[in-house]
Every structure is written in structure tokens, then in C-alpha cells.
Amino acid sequence: MTVVRPADVAVVVLAALLVGAAWAALWSGGGEGETVRITAPGAQPIELTLAADRSVSVAGALGPSVLEVRGGRVRFVESPCTGRYCIHAGWLSRGGQVAACLPNGVVAEVIGSGQQFDAISF
């Protein structure tokens, strides 16, 4: 009898897939932020990892909104709106947190891992 048979390999692969699924399940939901999804009118959503510091300019209905990713967090830095509520929202770091420049149509939402809620009241 050989030590390893083909069926054994199949079992190991299956088990590895199951374990992978467990990891994937862990990473969906709201909790520690991992990426930010930025949507703008008429454009495909962009997803940036919060791990890499960078600035990004997103074209909106009124002009460009500038967002900054730094130290695992993201915020609006510049925006052509008058209200400036998007900038005022400050740094976002947790899954589910959203800042939006409504007049410009630019929305930044942090996607993270952890507990999953269908909706947040705030």
C-alpha cells in the first residue's frame, strides 16, 4: 500500500477548499476596514485598499472630489460642493462607514470584515 493515494489527494483538496471558504466567510461584513469603494456618476466603482497610502481624484457632477487614503483610513480632502459635509465627515476606517459628496454624486464606502448587518441606523 502506498502512503498517498489519489483519493487522499482529493480529500485534501476538498478540505483545503472548505478551509478557504471559512476564510472568505470571515472577510465579508463590517468591521475592520480593508478597502474603500468609491462611486461616481457615470463611472465604474473603484476599490482601493486602505493598506496603501495614496490620493485619488474622482470626477463628479460638479467637478473633481479628492480623497486621501492614509494609515488605514480614508477621507474626502477636497470637493466642489458648498456644504462640505463630505469633508466634515472626517476619517473613515470601519466597514460600513460612508462619506458622500451628494451634490457631486461621489460616495466613499469602507468595505470590511466582521459582523454583517443588513442596514445601519444612525
Binding site: 500500500m1 502506498t2 498517498v4 493515494r5 489519489p6 483519493a7 487522499d8 480529500v11 485534501v12
Partner: peptide, 10 residues
């Protein structure tokens, strides 16, 4: 078809 490895992992 299964050997000790398959059984053990399962």
C-alpha cells in the same frame, strides 16, 4: 480508494 491521509484529514 482512501488511504490513511484521506481518512485523517477528513
Amino acid at each position: 480508494h482512501l488511504g490513511a491521509l484521506g481518512y485523517s484529514v477528513a
